[in-house]
Design a protein around this nucleic acid. Structure first.
Lengths: 146, 146
DNA sequence: TATTGTTATACTCTATAACTATA
DNA sequence: TATAGTTATAGAGTATAACAATA
């Protein structure tokens, strides 16, 4: 690796960035996402999140999924299209609302989801190892306030 | 706003995502970035970070900037191109290394940087207001461990 | 040989605007 | 009127692979 990501290199002056809680969160996220990308093949973080959320919330439609993930309908459309193209997901006509699609994992999507969960858990455990259990609980609690 | 982002909507099941520290960081970041985007016109977070880092580290070149920001040379190139096109930045021939460019803010870039710092400080203070000073210090400390 | 900048190329993420069908 | 899905379009962020100039 030509220089792995250094969280806060000592020889760099960060200026006002060093005072911003938003930037501290961003840098932590960069470090974690790099580990995610190196650990999970073929799935991006939004694709993984979508697979988990759809399975955990049966019958959910695209708009609601987008709201949960914090993106709009067009963005959700593109994400779902990619998962459908990979044969991980299907759009099923909703029985309660003729405008809507109930999202459903295919058999392949189910298998990929289960495997991805193992991969992601392993990845998350690796990065979480830098903190104690108590620190992790504190961190989760504080992050939930935003 | 057609449904602002809800950090952890109570009616949603998050499955394994609820156990992942990486996902907790991601959700906090989504909330904070949405406030950033609504607060700072014409500058994205990476553009702002670049302006601050270049000014804080005189003579820095593209490759080193990219290392600090966690992106590769081609990505850094595209980012610098955008800032140059906006007349916020110039590439100056390095005196110590004929391969390299010393990055330098233009007069316009300096003015935009100063104004952006005010805007971003205001934004960051708004999101940080959800935590006490002690909580913020703890959060920053824990985030630094990744 | 290694690094810096650069270009070509491609994919993902994201949004706005407008349209159709349905609620 | 409002919402779900859709399409067209565009820009930002990101990467890989290659090349020339320089170290």
């Amino acid at each position: 690796m030509p220089g792995a990501f250094e969280q806060w290199p000592a020889d760099v002056t960060f200026g006002v960035l060093g005072d911003l809680i938003g930037y501290a969160i961003r840098r932590a996220q960069i470090a974690i996402y790099k580990d995610f990308d190196a650990s999970i093949a073929d799935l991006t973080p939004p694709m993984f999140a979508a697979l988990v959320l759809i399975e955990a919330n049966p019958g959910i439609n695209q708009s609601r999924l987008g709201q949960i993930m914090g993106v709009n309908r067009a963005t959700t459309m593109a994400l779902i299209d990619r998962l459908v193209d990979l044969d991980l997901l299907t759009r099923v006509a909703s029985v309660t609302d003729k405008r809507a699609n109930a999202l459903k994992l295919t058999a392949l999507g189910q298998r990929r989801r289960l495997r991805a969960i193992d991969e992601v858990k392993s990845h998350d455990a690796r990065v979480a190892r830098r903190l104690t259990k108590a620190e992790l609980a504190t961190l989760r609690h504080l992050l939930g306030k935003f």
